[in-house]
């Protein structure tokens, strides 16, 4: 038992050492053989032109409204888990309440659609 455990650890250690030696070897070969081991810093490549401005910029993330709509329906699904357990006992009023709730959410979706939140073209 102890032997098996020891040999298991020995195997792991061997793999770690081999890996470390391999990585260190590759790194050493690179340092010693590359013509310029430090590497080159270059401007971003713009088809041969100098960048007129930094690419750090505000851009339109069109998935935000879609994400929010998804979250709304996700939370709504959370409400529906307890609801399905009691809907049979409570009866018609529970069904009506849930569908009114769904309807309100759906109105939001229709509004967002009218505002063009989902148009990707």
């Amino acid at each position: 038992m102890a032997d098996a455990a020891t040999s298991g650890w020995a195997g792991l250690l061997a793999v770690l050492v081999l890996g470390a030696v391999g990585v260190a070897g590759a790194f050493a070969v690179h340092r010693l053989t590359a013509v310029a081991p430090r590497g080159l810093t270059a401007w971003p490549w713009l088809s041969g032109w100098h960048p007129p401005e930094h690419a750090l910029s505000r851009y339109h993330a069109r998935w935000y409204p879609v994400t929010v709509v998804f979250l709304a329906f996700d939370v709504e699904m959370l409400f529906m888990y307890p609801w399905v357990l009691v809907v049979a006992d409570v009866g018609v009023s529970a069904v009506v309440e849930m569908f009114v709730f769904l309807g309100v959410l759906l109105l939001g979706v229709l509004w967002a659609r009218r505002e063009g939140a989902f148009s990707w073209q």
């Binding site: 713009l46 041969g48 401005e53 690419a55 910029s57 505000r58 339109h60």
Partner: peptide, 14 residues
């Protein structure tokens, strides 16, 4: 919506 625009030349080295 006001978003940032980038001037990006395409070509000749492309």
């Amino acid at each position: 919506l006001e978003m940032d625009v980038l001037r990006v030349p395409l070509g000749p080295v492309l």
